[in-house]
Amino acid sequence: MANSTPNIVVLISGSGTNLQALIDAHDRGELPANLSAVISNRPNAYGLERAAAAGIPTEVLDHTGFDSRELFDQALQREIDAYAPDLVILAGFMRILTEGFTQHYSGRMLNIHPSLLPKYQGLHTHQRALDAGDDCHGVTVHFVTAELDGGPNVVQAVVPVLPEDTAETLAKRVQVQEHVIYPLAARWFSEGRLRMAQGRSLLDGETLPDSGHIIDSRN
């Protein structure tokens, strides 16, 4: 990867807003990588149209056609590896991945999660933050490991929780920051600045804190 432009494969399940953020960053010259393919487990995912409009090859691998999670992940791995990716990006890919799959892409697969991990792994993160009375919330990009939403953090964006917030308004504020930090993390990786070693994230050779690099948008 050091001497050539890295290949990125993006996995999606839905509308693909984070995919669009990656496409836009690429088009602005801020993501020095090839967006080699977009693969969806849902045939009607709108993100496939975003990819096609950007001239990116698309693949559909419908998980409902497989008898087990393991068989789907094995087929998905073959589809991904056909593009020889340096990095796999999960952009709203709504699948729990098997351990063998995550190990295969260890250190070269990123995910984004709408909370300040390790807080609020799993679903309904915005409502959970409101129910807990948190004064801040946010989003995390992390390396993927076998533990759900548990890999080492790369970068977090912090947003304020306002007194009048609902889960929907808070989600919109978080999504703005998603579209900032996911292209940033992808750029760091593509430039050879970001890697995972011994279960930690390293940026420019320095071990990041457990939170990852922090971008605070509250100010």
Score class of each variant (00 low, 15 high):
Met94Glu: 09
Ala53Glu: 12
His113Tyr: 06
Asp149Ala: 08
Leu116Thr: 00
Glu70Arg: 09
Leu110Phe: 12
Gln127Cys: 09
His104Glu: 12
Pro114Lys: 09
Val38Thr: 04
Gly55Asp: 07
Glu59Leu: 11
Phe66Cys: 00
Ile56Thr: 02
Ala37Gly: 02
His142Val: 11
Phe93Gln: 05
Arg42Cys: 00
Glu49Ser: 12
Thr125Trp: 06
Gly122Arg: 08
Ala25Gly: 12
Gln103Tyr: 07
Ile96Glu: 08
Ile23Lys: 00
Ala52Val: 11
Ile96Arg: 12
Asp135Ser: 15
Val88Trp: 01
Gly100Gln: 14
Thr102Val: 11
Ile80Val: 13
Val139Asp: 07
Ile23Leu: 10
Gln77Asp: 06
Ala91Trp: 04
Pro43Gln: 04
Gly151Ser: 13
Thr64Met: 00
Ser36Trp: 06
Val139Thr: 15
Leu35Asp: 03
Pro43Ile: 02
Ala51His: 02
Pro57Asp: 10
Thr58Asp: 07
Ala45Glu: 06
Asp135Arg: 15
Leu76Lys: 04
Gln121Trp: 07
Gly100Phe: 10
His124Cys: 10
Asp81Gln: 14
Gly122Asn: 11
Arg42Leu: 06
Gln74Trp: 00
Leu123Gly: 09
His126Leu: 13
Lys119Val: 07
Pro85Thr: 11
Ala25Tyr: 03
Leu87Ser: 05
Arg42Pro: 00
Tyr83His: 12
Gln156Trp: 06
Ile112His: 09
His142Gln: 14
Ala52Trp: 03
Cys136Lys: 15
Glu70Asp: 11
Gln74Met: 07
Phe101Pro: 01
Ile96Gly: 07
Gly122Val: 05
Gly55His: 09
Cys136Gly: 12
Leu61Trp: 01
Arg108Pro: 01
Leu110Asn: 06
Gln127Trp: 06
Gly100Met: 09
Val88His: 01
Ser36Arg: 15
Gln103Asp: 13
Ala51Val: 02
Ala91Phe: 08
His113Asn: 07
Val154Ser: 05
Phe66Gln: 02
Glu30Ala: 15
His126Gly: 11
Gly150Glu: 05
Gly107Gln: 07
Thr98Gln: 14
Pro32Gln: 12
Pro85Glu: 05
Thr145Arg: 02
Gly107Leu: 07
Leu35His: 00
Leu97Ser: 05
His142Arg: 12
Arg108Ser: 06
Gly47Gln: 01
Arg69Met: 00
His63Asp: 03
Val139Met: 15
Gln74Glu: 13
Gly138Leu: 02
Val38Ser: 04
Leu61Met: 07
His124Met: 13
Leu87Arg: 03
Ala91Lys: 05
Ile80Asn: 04
Asn41Met: 03
Asn44Asp: 14
Gly122Met: 10
Phe66Ser: 00
Pro152Gln: 05
His113Gln: 08
Val139Trp: 13
Gly133His: 06
Asn34Leu: 05
Phe72Ser: 02
His142Met: 09
Ile56Trp: 02
Thr125Lys: 10
Leu90Gly: 03
His63Tyr: 09
Glu147Trp: 06
Val60Cys: 07
Ala45Val: 05
Met94Ile: 13
Val154Cys: 08
Asn41Trp: 01
